[in-house]
């Protein structure tokens, strides 16, 4: 079974159970156990990787030695041929054949080790990914539990009843109402502000004698006097 299937099982949890329980504690326990197993597996894989790599290095050295030995003996064979000693040359050639055979065998061994190492590295990387995925899942499940508790408390606070009574759309309506109220308050505050600043302005205009107001008393009197004089 792929790791994702197991995780789905865990987070689906108590979806079928009515009410509070969102997390299948049994699934969580299984997940915990699998996480422990996977970590053990990981440690073992890392240990064998170290062992295999050490052996690989040994074989690697041997392959290099054998290859150097082949080159070395080829030089001897050529020298023997050059000096006309065909018997010796043949003897060296036979030695080369023997070393080459050993070299082939060791090279195959080395290829096998290389394969093993890359296989083990893949396994380790995959296991590490799986462990991280499981850790993440456990964290999500535990978070969900904490959230569930908090949600119940929040629901009780907002609706004075249990969490099943609190619906998303009701909550949204409540938020909208709050936002509307806030907006209304802001609007009202702004209008008040405008009125306030308007009153200030007209007071200033009156003070400056630009609009009629307190200063107009004198002008009225002046107008009346002028009328009187004209009449008299």
């Amino acid at each position: 079974m792929s790791i994702w299937n197991k995780l789905i099982t865990a987070v689906r949890g108590g979806a079928t159970e009515v009410g509070e329980a969102i997390v299948d504690t049994q699934a969580l326990r299984i997940l915990d156990q699998e996480m422990r197993d996977a970590r053990k597996h990981l440690d073992q894989a890392k240990q064998s990787l170290t062992g295999v790599m050490a052996e690989k290095m040994g074989v690697d050295r041997k392959v290099k030695q054998l290859a150097a030995s082949v080159t070395e003996h080829e030089g001897y064979a050529i020298k023997a041929m050059e000096s006309g000693n065909d018997t010796l040359a043949l003897e060296v050639a036979e030695k080369i054949a023997e070393i080459s055979e050993e070299l082939d065998a060791q090279q195959k061994l080395l290829d096998g080790y290389n394969n093993n190492v890359s296989q083990l590295k893949k396994t380790i990387a995959e296991t590490e990914r799986n462990v991280r995925a499981m850790e993440r899942e456990v964290s999500i499940v535990k978070t969900t539990e904490a959230v569930n508790k908090a949600n119940s408390a929040a629901a009780a606070k907002f609706s004075g009843s249990n969490s099943s009574m609190r619906s998303a759309t009701d909550s949204l309506e409540r938020i909208k109402a709050k936002q509307q109220k806030r907006q209304d308050q802001m609007q009202a505050a702004m209008e008040l502000q405008n009125e306030g600043s308007g009153a200030d302005l007209s007071a200033k205009l009156k003070e400056a004698g630009i609009v009629s107001g307190a200063a107009s008393g004198n002008s009225i009197l002046e107008r009346l006097r002028a009328k009187q004089q004209a009449g008299g």
Binding site: R136, S139, K142, T143, E145, A146, K149, A150, R174, I175
Partner: peptide, 29 residues
């Protein structure tokens, strides 16, 4: 909030208290 050793932050946003945000952290995200 602490649940079985796993800590979670509950963030409430003014006027939106009905939908708090929960923050959790693991080794990766």
């Amino acid at each position: 909030m602490d649940n079985d050793g796993a800590h979670v932050i509950q963030v409430e946003i003014e006027d939106r208290e009905e939908f708090p945000i929960f923050i959790s952290l693991d080794s990766e995200q």
